Amino acid sequence: MTQRCIIVRHGQTEWSKSGQYTGLTDLALTDFGVKQMQRTGRSIFRDNSFVDPANVTYIFTSPRLRARQTIDLVLETLTAEQKANIRIVVDEDLREWEYGDYEGLLTHEIVSLRKSRGLDKTVPWNIWRDGCENGENTKQVGLRLSRAIARIQNLHKISQDNKKCSDIMVFAHGHVLRYFAALWSKKLSVEQKCNDEWERINPNSYKDESVPYIQLDTYRYLDDNPFFLLDAGGIGVLSYAHNSIDEPALALAGAFVPPPEEQSQHEEVPKN
């Protein structure tokens, strides 16, 4: 009955291949990226059954073409009936980090640009702490991903209360999915109260009445690199310890779930 959030980075694009920072630029997948995600879909749904289509309740996606194209390719092996039972929600909160002046640049080009502007004289640039000039800072990214996580974890709670399994898939990008994973368990991030208007506003980032909006009193953001890796086409699994929605955790085994008789039989520690 453990609920899961399965994060999927879109397949290869020309810029993910070259290492260029790709935020708002709307690129399609390369031919390799298309085949890459078709293989992924066959693997997780058909060949190895890492994901049971009957348990997939929602797919949340970035609005960018490369993410939406990846969904279509991953779901190719599903029947029309199976696809019809999955709600796909396009959510602006899951867009890639807005890189501003760094859009389309390579890391060494960003470092050189910042140096020419008199920045980073004492410590090297760290996007997780310093953000992007004329783009987003880390608090802005943390806030919108905190909103997305709150919605997904609430949907998992509803499924748990109804004694149903729910795999929710999230299709997005390299930086935001690593950020998303780091915020999931609340252990690697900094908590911030929603004091200012921009922190309290409901941006109406998606349109689906079946997904309750969760008003945040606090949100979380990163102030350093979480040191998570997720290559183009990569998949990660987030879940909950002890089947408890109150204990969000990273599932290190990913989609490779051991059979029930091999799973840990540790009992939950009683709460005071």
Rank of each mutant, 00 (worst) to 15 (best):
E76F: 09
T79A: 02
E81K: 05
E81N: 08
E81M: 00
Q82Y: 03
Q82I: 05
K83N: 01
I86S: 02
R87Y: 08
R87C: 11
I88L: 12
V89W: 06
V89Q: 06
W97A: 10
W97C: 03
Y99K: 07
G100I: 09
G100H: 12
D101Q: 08
D101I: 08
Y102M: 01
E103I: 06
T107P: 01
E109A: 09
I110L: 05
V111R: 15
L113P: 07
R114L: 12
K115E: 11
R117M: 11
L119E: 09
L119A: 03
K121E: 14
T122V: 14
V123I: 14
P124A: 08
W125E: 00
N126T: 12
W128H: 07
W128D: 02
W128K: 04
T138P: 07
T138M: 05
Q140P: 00
Q140I: 08
V141I: 05
G142Y: 09
L143C: 09
R144E: 04
R147S: 02
A150K: 03
R151E: 06
I152W: 09
L155S: 04
K157H: 15
Q160F: 10
Q160K: 14
D161M: 10
K163S: 15
K164V: 13
C165G: 09
S166T: 05
V170S: 06
V170Y: 05
H173R: 05
L177T: 07
L177S: 02
L177G: 01
R178P: 09
A181C: 12
W184M: 12
S185Y: 14
L188D: 14
S189D: 06
E191C: 12
Q192V: 03
Q192E: 07
Q192D: 02
N195C: 04
D196P: 01
E197S: 12
W198A: 10
E199C: 00
I201G: 00
S205T: 03
Y206L: 10
Y206E: 01
